[in-house]
Amino acid sequence: MAIAARNALYLRRRLRNTIARALAFAATAFGLGWLVLILGVLIFEGIGGLSLAVFTENTPPPGAAGGLLNAIMGSIVMTVLAIVIGTPIGVLAGTYMAEYGRHDKLASVVRFINDILLSAPSIVIGLFIYEVLVAPMGHFSGYAGSVALAVIVIPVVVRTTEDMLTLVPDTLREAAASIGLPRAHMIVRIAYRAARAGIVTGILLAIARISGETAPLLFTALNNQFFSLDMNAPVPSLPVVIFQFALSPYEEWQKLAWTGALLITVTVLALSIIARSLTARKS
């Protein structure tokens, strides 16, 4: 009797375990399945529209063929500007937290706030820049778009800089101090050099992050059908063009939207892989 009961219990437990394992397996297949589906459709649809014209012609009016040149260039320029604005602030802030503020109350508060900003909805950042730059200036501009992107870059760079600098062994710092090297010089000449790969990784991740950001650009840089790099006026960008084209009924536009989406995804994934390989080599 007891043995039978024990047997039944054992079988029940075995069954639960098997079901759980099967579910875990299924869950993983589920997750991977969506990845394959999304990337597969993206590649299939995007490659269909891929041609030299995409990189040499500007966005067309509805019903005509064209390319994405102005959108790509606009995105590149705004991204570069955003990195130029955001990286110094991010690196310096991360430096403070890793070097000067290890036991500082200010640093821990900033760390906390930074992590929140990292995950904050980007549309709110767009609203913020609209209130602060667009409305006072009276018009949309590429500058406003770049600043909005810079606000997204800063938390990413702060985080990676701080992490990477913390990894630099203190023995290096102590050696520098022992020969009379002032703190600032030690940081700039030794710590930065040691953490260089990591900081570059952070910048690459930041670029990857803002490459796909649409919401902050919607009401800062707006959009432009023509090739324009006049940063004091609306500037086209790839994500906003995709947004406009995808929601239209025109076939050529929808095809270009898929191609643009493929370009962004390839860029983002390539940057992530490069960033990952940089840090992997280090460790």
């Binding site: 320029v77 570069v80 500007l81 590429g142 023509f226 324009s228 790099l229 006049d230 940063m231 006026a233």
Partner: peptide, 8 residues
Amino acid sequence: IATSWPVL
């Protein structure tokens, strides 16, 4: 380029 692009 970005800062000096002439207005078309």
